[in-house]
Design a protein around this nucleic acid. Structure first.
Lengths: 215, 215
DNA sequence: TTGTTCTTGTTAATTATTCGACAAGAACTC
DNA sequence: GAGTTCTTGTCGAATAATTAACAAGAACAA
């Protein structure tokens, strides 16, 4: 455990960013199951990656294993949590209380990992005043004022595509540094704003493409 | 329009598969807006890709543009639909009628593009018999029989992680060729089964990572 | 102990992907 | 209709990502 990761500080490839949450998820399962140690070969076997890839990925952040032993599950999970930034809590705001917004707001997993939905907004007068995700649904008109008065880490857009860009602009205007976008449209933002897209239809179309690619 | 795509038949890089639905989405918007023609430079500008990448991506499937003109929006959209396999209809089965299942089932966009949810299953006796997505919610016990009697293209898993693998096994056993997986777990399947993962938490963790990567 | 088995982190080779540049040729201008 | 402007599809160079191989050293067995 005395070695330093050679590549610490290097730019992290896109693929590593995709795989880190997968490692986190599986390590959490292993820890719950009481598994104490695991090798890169076993991890690879379980998750369909090569062992070399897993070792290479981790080496961007440090040296967490031991020759002849592998990785201690709890220790590695702890490190991956640090890498992902899960030692802190994130405040989120949700715009859109339709079916998808409801599903996002009621998923307990986010809160459990430190992602708290602090407020919910919608434009539909029928929904305003209802309770959802432990919050009163507020009018979209109040969003700018809310962003002035509260520090928000992540803005969630769960609206139809027509509203996506304008909600995004409100978030950017209000100083929200990152956006989790479920609306099926490409958002234009300044470079410093981080956008993570979650496009259900795109995912389904990738599936269709891959079905046709073969036979 | 007489040239053949040089790379037609070559293996399609992962990145192209990710970008095709983005092109589809934007071209659909353009067509609705009545735009007739577009160049790779304009497409790139709108979607934050380089023009060269867009031309290169399309060249895997053919030559759809014209020098000095660019692409005809309707024509290119038609071609992209063909490439993605949207000329046919897909029958889907949804397992899990919780919040997320409800959101998936009630999204009209899927049906509009030819993806039909034909049946919904859940294990919760309180939900069975209720209507959802135009279907009666059936007991999970009936899934194997349903798969024997009906041709299903895509199985959707919208259950907690504990149930993910066993539902997946039922789909594979029942001859379902592809799986759209929302349950937060890695599925083990035979090589010929196509799995497309939609892990909300993973997406949120990627966002957190990127927030911490900078400051 | 001593030797054998594991398994890491790293390197170098391989493979894959992206991008700038350009010839070819259509569209547009006057 | 002659010349200029555009824009494609493709090539090769540059960049990026993955993988196989291996030295170093810990764990384990007898």
């Amino acid at each position: 455990m005395t070695l330093r990761g050679r590549r610490k500080g290097e730019a992290v490839p896109q693929g590593v960013v995709v795989r880190l949450p997968i490692y986190f998820r599986y390590l959490t399962e292993l820890e719950s199951a009481g598994v104490e140690r695991i090798s890169s070969a076993q991890l690879g076997e379980a998750l369909d990656f090569t062992a070399a890839q897993i070792r290479s990925d981790l080496s961007y952040f440090g040296s967490f294993g031991q020759q002849g032993y592998g990785y201690n599950v709890s220790e590695l999970l702890h490190q991956v949590k640090q890498i992902l930034g899960l030692q802190r809590v994130y405040s989120m705001v949700l715009v859109g209380a339709g079916n998808l917004g409801k599903a996002i707001g009621s998923y307990e997993g986010f809160r459990k990992r430190g992602f708290d939905i602090k407020a919910v907004f919608d434009i539909d007068p029928h929904l305003i005043g209802n309770h959802h995700a432990g919050c009163v649904i507020r009018s979209l008109d109040e969003l700018p004022k809310y962003l002035e008065e509260n520090q928000v880490d992540i803005g969630i857009i769960a609206t139809p595509k027509e509203a996506g860009q304008s909600i995004c602009d409100l978030f950017v205007q209000g100083g929200v540094p990152s956006i989790w976008n479920f609306s099926p449209t490409h958002l234009n933002t300044p470079d410093e704003v981080i956008v993570e897209d979650m496009h259900l239809t795109d995912s389904l179309l990738r599936l269709a493409f891959r079905m046709n690619e073969r036979g």
